[in-house]
Design a protein around this nucleic acid. Structure first.
Length: 275
DNA sequence: ACGAGAACCTGTTTGC
DNA sequence: TGCAAACAGGTTCTCG
């Protein structure tokens, strides 16, 4: 479900609830997510103060005052639901973890499909953690630029669509924003990645940045069940130019947006505008 | 070593 | 109307 803009939106919703607060209660209802919760998971968090909450790629990282870092990933269907002790919502069918703070906030991690995960590391080991160590550059950060993308795509025979979904190439893109960025840069999703470095990459880098920034400004995209941590809906889905637009007229040329399947995922694009 | 495809799991939408 | 198939924002493993 959530890609970089949605996770960023969730993090911004969690910050005012968690940063500076003490976790007075940590309840794990169901431990069989994508990876099992580590032993002592709840004990490592309970009674600790949250120093900061940040996003890395599609991961949410919460650093505690004992040096422990909570790693959370929302998978396809994960959500962070916010509530208050005063009006505590009943536990839902897929509420897996519930955090309660010293000022009465409730953060509930809900994930129907259980493709998400929660685990622990430490500040010291964070950079070498298996989930985080291999990630490519943040697309909105200083280390993502034409040169780094050129290097990452060099010699790759896979279609550019698949290459951009590879979190080692650039960290945080998913199916929606890859489709949108390729459309905005006029690059066919079927084009081999090794043919993108150069002039095409010079269009692609700003297209990726622009679409992500626009989506963050809109509070992410709300499809089906995704909602912001605040419970509000993102609205960037209304700005999709190709994603989900099969059969609709292309905003660029008036032709028809096509849907194909690449490595098992839907790709939406305009064959006239994207070469 | 690399890339395509399957697998993980549940809920919703689509099509016959 | 009802049921089965298809499909969904991600990641990781297996197989060729």
């Amino acid at each position: 479900m959530p890609e970089l803009p949605e996770v960023e939106t969730v993090v911004r919703g969690l910050r005012p609830r968690l940063e500076g607060r003490v976790l007075t209660q940590v309840d794990v209802r169901r431990g069989d997510l994508r990876i099992p919760f580590p032993p002592g998971f709840a004990d490592a968090l309970r009674g600790r103060r949250v120093l900061r909450v940040v996003r890395r790629a599609k991961y949410i990282l919460a650093t505690l005052d004992n040096g422990v870092v909570l790693i959370a990933h929302l998978g396809m269907s994960g959500r962070m639901l916010l509530g208050d002790v005063a009006s505590a919502p009943a536990l839902g069918a897929h509420d897996h973890v519930r955090l309660i703070t010293d000022d009465g906030s409730i953060v509930t991690y809900n994930d129907a499909r259980r493709f998400g995960l929660m685990t622990l590391t430490t500040e010291k080991d964070q950079d070498s953690h298996p989930l985080l160590a291999g990630l490519g550059p943040e697309p909105l950060g200083n280390s993502f630029h034409v040169e780094s993308l050129n290097a990452a795509l060099k010699g790759k025979k896979t279609p550019i669509k698949a290459a951009l979904l590879d979190q080692k190439v650039v960290a945080g893109l998913g199916n929606i924003y890859v489709c949108e960025a390729l459309f905005r840069s006029g690059i066919s999703p079927k084009r081999l990645a090794r043919t993108v470095p150069g002039a095409r990459a010079e269009k692609l880098v700003p297209a990726i940045r622009d679409v992500l920034n626009a989506a963050i400004a809109a509070g992410g995209s709300t499809l089906r069940d995704y909602v912001q941590a605040s419970g509000e809906l993102g609205y960037f889905q209304h700005n999709f130019l190709v994603y989900g637009q099969e059969g609709q007229p292309c905003s660029g040329c008036g032709g028809t947006v096509k849907r194909i399947v690449q490595s098992g995922r839907s790709t939406f694009f305009c064959p006239k505008c994207q070469k």
